[in-house]
């Protein structure tokens, strides 16, 4: 009755030192599902995300990904060139700091067009039209298409980064604290945008955040990490409303509600 998982993670371990990194993480991710990874700084969230997105080989464990053609691929059994191909076609990676995910030296339009050019689009007019379409989809003023991202505000840069990733219609997007460092009002707008895009494009998302409100808004399921280990998993509202582990209880009870 259920569709097959998009991502199968089995006992992933990547440790820099004891309790530094992530250990024994396993989960399945299904198409269209949003999985939140929460935990405090240094709990191994970002390490795990790097492993999942083929940017950091784990010490042990396997990650399998089902591609568009329906083949189950062993991520770290693939050549680096196939890994990159996945990263720029079927996946998206949204970094916390937009400058890590954008080319700051070239225009917004070129940033959006890069993935298309990398996958063989050779028609300037089409690239331009697609870039304009995506700019308006992420609520950027299309008049800014030829401006460099250095002239954009933080929120605009983050939206440009999202457009740049979604232009190849990925099926799976990795996000590392996408709203971190933004003003609250800007955060709300970005979250709403993400929520809309996730539903409209049926994206599967793995989102790392330390903001439980962000997790509640976007994620259907949560993984709670502490000192590199998963301490609790479950439906987002269940984990947040009836936390079982001492650490999750501490995390939930520490949040200020205005």
């Amino acid at each position: 009755m259920m569709t097959e998982p998009l991502l199968q993670v089995k006992e992933i371990t990547k440790l820099y030192a004891a309790n530094k990194g992530c250990a024994n993480v396993s989960f399945d991710l299904y198409p269209g599902e949003v999985l939140g990874i929460v935990g405090e700084s240094g709990s191994g969230k970002s390490t795990l995300l790097s492993c999942l997105s083929a940017r950091l080989a784990p010490d042990s464990g396997t990650i399998q990904y089902r591609n568009r053609a329906g083949e189950m691929l062993d991520l770290y059994g693939l050549s680096e060139s196939r890994q990159r191909q996945l990263q720029r076609t079927e996946w998206g990676i949204v970094h916390q700091h937009a400058r890590d995910g954008l080319r700051m030296g070239v225009s917004g339009g070129a940033n959006i067009g890069e993935r298309l050019m990398a996958t063989g689009e050779r028609h300037y007019g089409n690239l331009r039209a697609t870039a304009e379409q995506w700019m308006s989809d992420v609520e950027l003023d299309t008049d800014r298409i030829d401006d460099k991202p250095t002239t954009y505000s933080g929120g605009m840069q983050q939206r440009l980064q999202i457009a740049r990733n979604l232009v190849t219609h990925p099926r799976l997007v990795f996000m590392d604290e996408p709203t971190g460092g933004l003003d609250v009002s800007v955060q709300a707008r970005l979250l709403d945008l993400l929520r809309r895009l996730v539903t409209e494009l049926n994206l599967a998302v793995v989102i790392v955040t330390h903001d439980l409100a962000v997790a509640r808004l976007l994620a259907q399921r949560l993984i709670v990490m502490r000192r590199g280990e998963v301490v609790e998993t479950g439906l987002t509202d269940q984990v947040l409303d009836d936390p079982q582990h001492a650490y999750t209880q501490l995390l939930v009870s520490s949040v200020l509600t205005p």
Partner: peptide, 15 residues
């Protein structure tokens, strides 16, 4: 063969 960026320069020229 990750050459997507090469066309960026040409794109920027035309833009």
């Amino acid at each position: 063969e990750d050459y997507g960026v090469m066309h960026i320069k040409l794109y920027e020229d035309i833009a």
